[in-house]
Design a protein around this nucleic acid. Structure first.
Ligand SMILES: [Mn+2]
Ligand SMILES: [Mn+2]
Ligand SMILES: [Zn+2]
Ligand SMILES: [Zn+2]
Lengths: 147, 147
DNA sequence: AGAAAGAATTGGAACAATTCTAATTAAATT
DNA sequence: AATTTAATTAGAATTGTTCCAATTCTTTCT
């Protein structure tokens, strides 16, 4: 499980002009940095509020556009818990999400090493899984919480 | 995997006046029967359209109310795929959902017998999982499809 | 049974998240 | 520099869902 803030601060000027085939505009860099920087799965609104601090003229539409572009180019992942506002995650490793019901915080959870989908699901022969989304909700002991 | 229509037809008049602590009104019986009857994970709109055939005056608000009541009393499950309209499922066995990307059809998938969440996820010690939602999308071979 | 209270249904208004539109600005290409 | 292409912006529109207040239905009480 991880919620640890990355030790380095991502700065827009360090981001190359193109990333994964996507032209990185000023706004896209800002949104991307902010996600990489505070890896806490913010909503589009959260991103909008944070982005405005360094870029007061950015619009909510642009935030949505940037997030969509980043998601389409697989630089960022969109995470849905039920029908709550989508959240965005810059962790590209295969992982799933756990929401602490006490704090609302979302944590990344990885699969056991070497585990395969057919090891735990009774999938019919020949089915090809293209997308998997797994979300968990529950309670974390406070000892685990602070790390 | 299952999409098999149940062989018996559920009729509202067979439903008891109360189910799992929920008073079964005429509308709730209708909605519940219809879900039990065609186990294809319809949306609220789908339910509304189907319900109107036998109950032309039912309102969409009532369909939402009924579904909410049934879900709260754990007679029916709400299923979300990304931000698409919620779907409703009368299968109370523990299971997850697979959507066929070619047809849009949703199929129930069960866990391997005896499997535990800690067998496939790297969950920190002491975390208590209260809810789990797993959705899959992919391609089914047409042989598997028709059963 | 009849009256009163409580609960559910209804149609339409309100809502929240997201998407769309058309105008403006910025960047890339010629 | 002029032209073409792409991105950003503010605000309107859309969509699924929830809320509201009035009406109807059911249950409880006398
Ligand atoms: Mn859920
Ligand atoms: Mn998804
Ligand atoms: Zn994540
Ligand atoms: Zn199901």
């Amino acid at each position: 499980m991880s919620e640890s803030a990355s030790p380095v601060k991502f700065r827009p000027e360090e981001i190359p002009a193109e990333l994964g085939g996507l032209r990185m505009t000023k706004q896209r860099k800002e949104v991307y940095c902010l996600l990489m920087d505070q890896r806490d799965h913010p909503t589009a609104q959260d991103v909008f509020i944070r982005a405005k601090e360094r870029m007061p003229n950015i619009s909510l539409a642009t935030v949505y556009n940037c997030l969509e572009a980043l998601v389409n180019h697989e630089l960022v992942r969109q995470v849905n818990f039920d029908r709550a506002p989508s959240r965005y995650c810059p962790n590209l490793e295969e992982h799933v999400h756990f929401q602490d019901l006490e704090t609302g915080a979302i944590h990344d959870v990885v699969f056991k090493k070497g585990i395969n989908i057919n090891d735990f699901l009774e999938l019919p022969e020949g089915v090809e899984v293209r997308e998997l989304e797994l979300t968990l909700k529950g309670i974390m002991p406070s000892s685990t919480k602070k790390n």
